[in-house]
Computed example of a mutant assay.
Amino acid sequence: MTSEEQNIKEKWQSFRNGINSISDEYREEFMDTELVNSAKNAMAEKLLDSRNKGRGGWWSENCSTEHLNELLKEHVNKGDMVDVMNIAAMIYYREAAGM
């Protein structure tokens, strides 16, 4: 279990018990913010681990969006959702940048 997964597990226990104390008006925003922050932390943790293993270059000319799309399919099938988020974000960034 990664440190972010442990963090989510611990926070969820608190959220589950107190989520109804947050007004209806803010509950969805609260949980959406929690989701984004937790996903960002998990993604950063995994990217650091990958860099430490010598992986990288998604932004370079040596990597293609087509290659990333293939990796995305592989990681969906593996069930590694943090890798899925990271690879999807790489594709999103490349497409938005016109790479």
Results as ranks from 00 to 15, higher is better:
residue 2 T to C: 10
residue 6 Q to H: 13
residue 7 N to E: 08
residue 7 N to D: 08
residue 7 N to C: 05
residue 8 I to C: 04
residue 8 I to V: 08
residue 9 K to H: 14
residue 13 Q to D: 13
residue 15 F to A: 08
residue 17 N to L: 14
residue 17 N to T: 03
residue 17 N to F: 11
residue 18 G to C: 00
residue 20 N to G: 07
residue 20 N to L: 05
residue 26 Y to W: 12
residue 27 R to C: 00
residue 30 F to V: 11
residue 31 M to Q: 00
residue 31 M to L: 00
residue 31 M to S: 00
residue 32 D to Q: 06
residue 33 T to E: 05
residue 33 T to F: 06
residue 34 E to Q: 01
residue 34 E to C: 00
residue 35 L to Y: 01
residue 36 V to H: 08
residue 37 N to D: 06
residue 37 N to T: 11
residue 37 N to L: 10
residue 38 S to W: 00
residue 38 S to V: 01
residue 38 S to C: 02
residue 41 N to S: 07
residue 42 A to E: 00
residue 45 E to P: 06
residue 46 K to H: 03
residue 46 K to V: 00
residue 46 K to A: 03
residue 46 K to R: 12
residue 46 K to Q: 07
residue 48 L to N: 09
residue 49 D to L: 08
residue 50 S to A: 15
residue 51 R to S: 08
residue 53 K to G: 01
residue 53 K to F: 04
residue 54 G to L: 14
residue 57 G to M: 06
residue 58 W to S: 04
residue 58 W to V: 07
residue 59 W to V: 02
residue 61 E to H: 15
residue 63 C to D: 11
residue 67 H to P: 05
residue 68 L to S: 09
residue 69 N to Q: 13
residue 69 N to C: 14
residue 69 N to G: 14
residue 69 N to F: 04
residue 70 E to V: 03
residue 70 E to Y: 02
residue 71 L to R: 04
residue 73 K to M: 05
residue 74 E to T: 14
residue 74 E to L: 13
residue 75 H to W: 06
residue 78 K to M: 11
residue 78 K to T: 02
residue 80 D to N: 13
residue 82 V to K: 08
residue 83 D to P: 07
residue 84 V to T: 06
residue 85 M to G: 04
residue 86 N to Q: 09
residue 86 N to Y: 02
residue 87 I to M: 03
residue 88 A to L: 12
residue 88 A to H: 13
residue 88 A to G: 15
residue 90 M to K: 10
residue 92 Y to G: 15
residue 93 Y to I: 09
residue 93 Y to S: 10
residue 94 R to Q: 03
residue 94 R to T: 01
residue 96 A to G: 11
residue 96 A to N: 05
residue 96 A to Y: 08
residue 98 G to E: 00
